[in-house]
Design a protein around this nucleic acid. Structure first.
Ligand SMILES: [Zn+2]
Ligand SMILES: [Zn+2]
Ligand SMILES: [Zn+2]
Ligand SMILES: [Zn+2]
Lengths: 138, 138
DNA sequence: GCTACAATCTCCAGTCACTGGAGAAGCAAG
DNA sequence: CTTGCTTCTCCAGTGACTGGAGATTGTAGC
């Protein structure tokens, strides 16, 4: 059995975050010691690492809840887990293309600016009029 | 003078957002009509479009506040505006590389999975152990 | 003038995923 | 017993909105 500080160190998840995950039902409430301290079984480290890893890959809490539940159930088919991963992948690709478009605009704005006064600034000028952008939408 | 609904349509910024921008001091409080309605000068459309455009390029409100103020002051040197743009560009590049790393992991997880049961699922398996990832960090 | 209906007003709460502070209580070592 | 560390609960704040409730104002048609 581990105290919360130990669990935090072993899993790499901050103490307030662990309590937060408990409060939203992502991490099951552990037993308490006589003095009301949370006492975790060793498996909690694994679950929390799983959660952390999924968060690092950008999964939302709801998706992680499903993924973590599925991980506990080895006989189930994995199509739902794979679907969640594919959804996340699509999301990532959309984000990347949006950011790449923003990057293109900024590179151009900065590159075209002669760095004189505001009145000739390409950055301000472009922000002031989207028609001066390469991409129709951002 | 435009009412808020008109301003919203002309600028593409939703009414509650316009009021929100006023509340945080990004948009100056307009004069009011006898009946306490906000009445905007035509220039408000331009300012709001500027703000919206900068938001679409991912600038934070604080940066936009500076940029919008600088835009009003044509004689100033534009180095600060350019610096804000360069900062945003760096931020974008960092985001893209983080997302690209996530994408690589997900593509591999999904591609390697034989889509059988959870116990053999590469998605769950990889989430469970970051050592199975390509990238050391995400 | 009256009646709908649309537009706007203020205030407040919710979103997401944490993060941190205040103040109190428990716990281990010297 | 005291000192200092850990943990407890509760609450508020983050960023940038978003939307609902309930009240008021403006406008068009009759
Ligand atoms: Zn410039
Ligand atoms: Zn643009
Ligand atoms: Zn699978
Ligand atoms: Zn990993």
């Amino acid at each position: 059995m581990l105290a919360i500080g130990r669990l935090s160190k072993d899993s790499g998840v901050k103490i307030p975050t662990i309590r937060y995950y408990e409060s939203i039902g992502l991490l099951p409430p552990p037993v308490r010691s006589e003095g009301n301290r949370r006492m975790y079984p060793p498996e909690a480290v694994r679950r929390l690492r799983f959660i952390r890893h999924a968060r690092e890959l950008g999964f939302e809490i709801d998706a992680i809840r499903r993924l973590a539940d599925l991980a506990q159930d080895p006989a189930q088919p994995c199509c739902e887990a794979d679907l969640l991963a594919r959804r996340r992948l699509i999301e990532i690709e959309e984000k990347i293309s949006r950011l790449a478009a923003q990057r293109d605009e900024l590179v151009r704005m900065i590159g075209d600016c002669t760095h004189g006064r505001i009145e000739e600034c390409r950055v301000i000028d472009t922000l002031d009029d989207h028609a001066k952008c390469l991409h129709a939408r951002h």
